[in-house]
Amino acid sequence: MMSLNREISHATHLQEADLASYVINATKEVFDTMVMMALEDSYPLKEPVTSFHCSVTGMVGLAGTYTGILSIHCPRSFALRITSNMLGMDVEEVGEDVNDALGEIANMLGGYVKQILSKGGLDINLSIPTVISGEDYTVNSMSDSDCVIIPFTNENERFLVGLKLRKEV
């Protein structure tokens, strides 16, 4: 069972369900306003997912008083739909446009998470987004026990948003 570690719950005064709810609302808002897609969430994830096939993953790192990774993992077909909607034109291949679109979604979601953890914003930095894609790959951070993963669906296609956090001393 994936779960938020106790240290984070204690430091943020948030239970895992609260943090998950915040990420769900943030993801729905980003998709509603920037991607023009309505999402359904099906939290909690029933079984761990670490291996991806024909997928695209966008990630942004947090560093400072908290460290962590916010990630979005999509099947290739869904990544193409997201990018097409964001750009307002048909995108048929995974390339620069898809990488940029997925990176920007990760960046916006990372901004929401940063705002929960840091009121001022100067004690946590967001990294420039990283995007990977491929036929088969594994994301190791997703196998850790302190990772919250939320499944979303749109038109029967599923994608995941993951958040792994650690409190720095």
Partner: peptide
């Protein structure tokens, strides 16, 4: 136009 919503960053 930014993902940054932190008060201190916006003040800066």
């Amino acid at each position: 136009i930014t993902t940054e919503g932190g008060e201190d960053i916006l003040k800066e």
